[in-house]
Design a protein around this nucleic acid. Sequence first.
DNA 1: GCTCCTAAGTTCTTTTGTGGAACTCGCTAA
DNA 2: TTAGCGAGTTCCACAAAAGAACTTAGGAGC
Lengths: 134, 134
Amino acid sequence: MVVLRDCFLGVRRFDDFEKRLGITRHVLADRLKKLVEHGVLYKTPYQQKPVRQEYRLTEKGLELHPVVLALVHWGDKHMADERGAPIVHVHKQCGKIMQPLTTCSCCGEPVTARDIRVEPGAQWQDRSAELLPR
Amino acid sequence: MVVLRDCFLGVRRFDDFEKRLGITRHVLADRLKKLVEHGVLYKTPYQQKPVRQEYRLTEKGLELHPVVLALVHWGDKHMADERGAPIVHVHKQCGKIMQPLTTCSCCGEPVTARDIRVEPGAQWQDRSAELLPR
DNA sequence: GCTCCTAAGTTCTTTTGTGGAACTCGCTAA
DNA sequence: TTAGCGAGTTCCACAAAAGAACTTAGGAGC
């Protein structure tokens, strides 16, 4: 998650990740490799002689933005000190500082945990006991 | 994250978490303790003689719902097999199967990674070099 | 020609975390 | 009297992470 957070801030290079994250080079190399293997990041050279790679979000990776945004927002609300949120998100279209709001894709209304009921997926009915409690 | 996911499905008891998650009792006890310490879950007895506890989401924990919902939705889209999503979310108010949509709190428009610009928070200007790359 | 520097790793050793199984404790039911 | 349940705790062997040094392929300064 912290690697992804920094990707969304525009960090692309191995040493930049290492300086920003409190993580060893070994673990960073491992995580980057796994993210590439799963198609969340891709590796592309930004210079030859010597070859230097950078890591960028794929389309699949970009679609994790709602997850990271929601988690950052939660952290800003519940973990921040008196200085408040260390960074803010500006919505380019409307120009204002925004908070992410989760809404229903059908009716557009805001959605909280209490507004949702969970049901087994269409192809999974026979296995709902394993999927849902009680 | 998997403990939280199951909390939002209504799982509350130690042994139920253990059966559903591929995680040892030791690690589960540790994670539940940490989540309680951080105020995401709270422990409450559901019977006396002998005392049995259950774990429930606090208000702070419930506010992680957008994070879990967004991550589940991403997984359904990118990791599901031909059977599709194992569970679906029904919006109680409109009665339809919904996908979470992240929108701008100011203008209400849907937001993607490309619509956002990041800036340092008001009280943090002097430290923006550490917070933002380049 | 020598030394230092950079980026992107890899290798090494020590410490910490995890998996798996068994054990505990307070109680209930057969 | 024995068995079972829920919610852990303890023990050991193995896996992963921290921290530091080393590697490789070049470039800059002297």
